[in-house]
Design a protein around this nucleic acid. Structure first.
Length: 268
DNA sequence: CTGGGGACGGGGCCC
DNA sequence: AGGGCCCCGTCCCCA
């Protein structure tokens, strides 16, 4: 049975990867990754401590992971997936659209004012203004990236994939996408191909058995950081995905979806 | 059926 | 500009 995420997701069943093309693009992962196989070969084992990792899930004082609830956010409801990040959303982030569902220049302006209030230097620093949305940036390159990714992009999607119908607003994004077709990173052990080197590295761990991501609350270790993150949810009393009807919480979105589809919401 | 682990894709950010 | 890395999300499988 094919996996949900076949390496060649966008290919038709009739299509096969062009391995001859891969020959010229193949990325060779450092041979040291395979040395001593199946002995773990990827260095820098990592242990995520609760101090370093603060699962959002845990907006409860009962939890050992307790973290302060950001002002203006209610526990669990409307949980933003990015809350786990320390860094604020990017300036061109669409958060301002969340309030009314439409682009609001006023909220954008408010956002900029807020950032200016918190950073007085920003007032002098913001010299480069987008002629399309009036957002200002302190550097020319900042403005350039904004225009490339968000503003100019809105009006012209000019980079089309020759393998599928997808269009991208920047050449870099298109190149990244094309890798999902060409799959230049090939596992020397099983021949499986991947779009990015780090995907291949993660795959190699399935051969080596290396599990560099350890849970600080139990003895389990994981080869994939995302899987450790999901696992950490299991140590929490209150999970971050909550059913709006019965308030039951789940460690994963997929579990919540299953729960909802099973009829909980209909039963209430 | 539910919960959790394994494997993976892709977007975005940083350097 | 491009690569590396992080994060979110998804699906399959299994206990």
């Amino acid at each position: 049975m094919p996996r949900s995420f076949p390496v060649k997701k966008h290919f038709n069943a009739s299509k096969k990867p062009n391995y001859s093309e891969l020959d010229t693009h193949t990325v060779i992962i450092s041979p040291c990754l395979y040395e001593g196989y199946p002995v773990p070969v990827i260095p820098q084992p990592e242990v995520l401590r609760s101090g370093a990792y603060s699962p959002i899930a845990v907006w409860t004082t009962a939890s050992p992971f307790h973290a302060p609830l950001p002002a203006g956010l209610s526990p669990l409801s409307g949980y933003p997936a990015s809350l786990g990040r320390v860094s604020p959303p990017p300036p061109s982030d669409t958060s301002s659209k969340d309030h009314s569902g439409s682009e609001s220049p006023i909220s954008d302006e408010e956002e900029r004012l807020q950032s200016k209030l918190s950073d007085p230097h920003a007032i002098e620093a913001e010299k480069f203004q987008c002629n399309l949305c009036n957002k200002t940036y302190s550097t020319f390159s900042g403005l350039g990236k904004h225009k490339q990714l968000h503003c100019d992009a809105q009006s012209r999607k000019s980079f089309s994939c020759k393998y599928c119908d997808k269009e991208y607003v920047s050449l870099g994004a298109l190149k990244m996408h094309i890798r999902t077709h060409t799959l230049p990173c090939v596992c020397k052990i099983c021949g499986k191909a991947f779009s990015r080197p780090w995907l291949l590295q993660g795959h190699i761990r399935t051969h080596t058995g290396e599990k560099p991501f350890s849970c600080s609350h139990c003895s389990r270790a994981f080869a994939d950081r995302s899987n450790l993150r999901a696992h950490l949810q299991t140590h929490s009393d209150v999970k971050k995905y909550q059913c709006k009807s019965c308030s039951k919480t789940f460690s994963r979105m997929s579990l919540l979806h299953k729960h909802e589809e099973s009829g909980c919401c209909a039963a209430h």
